[in-house]
Amino acid sequence: MLKKEQFLSYSAGAIVAGMYCGKLELNGDFFAGYEYGTGISPSLDPYFRSEMKRLEKEAEGDLKSYCSLARLMFYKGNKPKPLVAPLLIDKP
Rank of each mutant, 00 (worst) to 15 (best):
P82T: 06
P82N: 09
Y47M: 03
K76F: 09
G37R: 13
E35N: 02
F48H: 01
P86C: 05
L24H: 05
Y66T: 03
I40M: 06
F74W: 07
K53Y: 09
P82A: 09
S11K: 01
Q6K: 13
E56G: 08
L26N: 11
F31N: 01
G33D: 11
S11E: 03
K3G: 11
L24P: 00
R71C: 04
L83R: 13
L44V: 08
P42Q: 08
L72K: 05
K64E: 10
D29S: 07
S68N: 11
L88P: 00
T38E: 07
L83W: 15
Y66M: 08
G13R: 02
S41A: 09
K57N: 07
E51M: 00
E58R: 12
A85S: 13
E35C: 04
L26R: 14
L69M: 11
S65W: 05
F7N: 01
Y36L: 15
G13T: 02
L55T: 01
S43R: 09
T38V: 09
Y34S: 03
K64A: 12
L24T: 00
R49W: 10
A32I: 07
G61S: 15
L87S: 00
V16H: 03
E58N: 08
V84E: 09
P92H: 05
V16P: 03
E35M: 11
A70L: 05
Y34G: 03
R54E: 15
G39D: 09
D62H: 10
L72W: 06
G77Q: 15
L69Y: 07
P46Y: 00
S50F: 01
Q6F: 03
L88G: 00
I89P: 11
A70G: 04
C67F: 04
F30R: 09
F48G: 00
D45Q: 13
S43A: 08
A59C: 15
K23V: 04
K76Q: 14
E58C: 04
D62C: 13
C21W: 02
F31M: 07
G13E: 05
D45Y: 06
G33H: 07
L88N: 00
A85E: 13
Q6E: 15
M19L: 15
L72Q: 08
L83T: 07
E56M: 15
A17T: 03
S43E: 10
P92T: 07
L63R: 15
K53V: 11
E56W: 13
D29W: 06
K4F: 11
L55P: 01
E60V: 06
S68C: 09
K79P: 05
L44Q: 14
G37D: 15
N27Q: 12
F31P: 00
R54S: 13
K64N: 05
M1P: 14
L8F: 02
D62W: 10
M52I: 15
R49Q: 15
G77F: 11
F31A: 02
K4C: 13
M52A: 10
Y66G: 04
C21Q: 04
G28A: 07
P86W: 02
A17Y: 00
D90H: 04
F74P: 04
P46Q: 01
Y47F: 12
K23C: 05
F30G: 00
D62P: 08
Q6P: 13
F7P: 01
E58S: 08
Y20F: 12
Y66Q: 07
